[in-house]
């Protein structure tokens, strides 16, 4: 395996959790709800995933538990911002703090317990193609799932009636309500989807990327996923570009540290965060001040009967 191949493989593993979490948040935001608690849902997915996987001995049970944990947290959030019309930014922050704490409590008995990661799926024949084979056809199931999710979401938002209704809820909730659509129910379902994706992304961290649990192991990935949604201008395929850009920067700094580049390791570690800020600025600059965000993003909606 060449070095470039090895680097590209690690870029894929670094980008996959970002992509999965971002695509989930993209759906929630397209429905008009800003859920800043991705970090909390993601780390709860990581903790619940490894706890269930170690207790039952089954990776599938771990993945299921992670998805359910993410959805449970999203449901709490939905109850607050939809049922009680609270401020979405503050409730999202509360969800992030709550998730970080609860995952630490839940994961405490599992600190440092090692476990075998999830194996890769090899597509017969195709994986033998030189260079492209191992990259495209010898990956773990999460990588395939991430691309299936992107394709599914792109199709759902752009080509289906339900996707159109979901976007209507995000652009103009009052109009969607007047047409007889259940805005709050649709937004709640979108939130649950976002929670499931964040939980799945967390499972990837604790079951594949580093197959053991450490407190706070998401280290800001949930927040970067939020930035990717903005970077992608709320469009599903652009989220792939965003996720792979940020994943690439993460890996680049790791390799630069390994190669002994004479820059303090902390400066390299800060790079993904600085690139996120830079990307946000550049994307806003490129749009020339106009906003492509869903018009109703972050605004609570209270149907008056």
């Amino acid at each position: 395996m060449t070095l470039i191949e090895a680097i590209l493989l690690t870029v894929i593993t670094a980008s996959t959790p970002l992509l999965i979490a971002a695509i989930g948040e993209l759906i929630a935001e397209r429905a008009g709800v800003l859920n800043l608690g991705v970090e909390g849902m993601m780390i709860m997915g990581a903790a619940a995933g490894i706890a269930a996987a170690i207790t039952t001995g089954s990776s599938a049970a771990g993945v299921a538990a992670a998805i359910l944990a993410g959805m449970a947290l999203a449901a709490i959030f939905g109850l607050l911002v939809l049922g009680l019309a609270t401020n979405q930014v503050a409730a999202g922050l509360a969800l992030a703090i709550f998730g970080l704490g609860l995952s630490g409590v839940l994961g405490a008995p599992f600190v440092g317990v090692p476990r075998a990661g999830i194996g890769k799926i090899e597509v017969p024949f195709l994986s033998d193609i030189p260079f492209l084979g191992p990259l495209l056809f010898r990956q773990d199931p999460f990588v395939y799932a991430s691309f299936a999710l992107v394709a599914g979401v792109a199709w759902f938002l752009g080509r289906t009636r339900a996707g159109l209704v979901l976007r209507a809820c995000g652009e103009n909730a009052a109009a969607a309500h007047a047409l007889g659509y259940k805005v709050l129910r649709i937004r709640f379902l979108a939130l649950l989807f976002g929670g499931a994706c964040a939980g799945l992304a967390g499972a990837y961290l604790s079951l594949v990327l580093t197959p053991f649990w450490t407190s706070g192991m998401t280290s800001g990935r949930g927040w970067i996923a939020l930035a990717i949604v903005v970077f992608a201008s709320w469009m599903s395929w652009r989220a792939v570009a965003g996720a792979y850009l940020f994943g690439g920067v993460t890996i680049l700094q790791l390799h630069a540290q390994g190669a002994g580049v004479p820059i303090p390791p902390q400066a390299m570690a800060a790079l993904p965060y600085l690139v996120t800020i830079l990307a946000l600025v550049l994307i806003m600059q490129a749009r020339g001040g106009g906003s492509t965000a869903p018009a109703g993003l972050g605004t609570p909606f209270v149907p008056d009967r």
């Binding site: 009680l84 409730a91 922050l93 509360a94 969800l95 998730g99 704490g101 630490g104 405490a108």
Partner: peptide, 25 residues
Amino acid sequence: PLDATRVIQGLLLFYVLACDTLLLY
């Protein structure tokens, strides 16, 4: 576990926001 403190703090913010709704609605 020390993280229990963060759980309580997060819960507190949830409840504060939820109770504030009672003021408006």
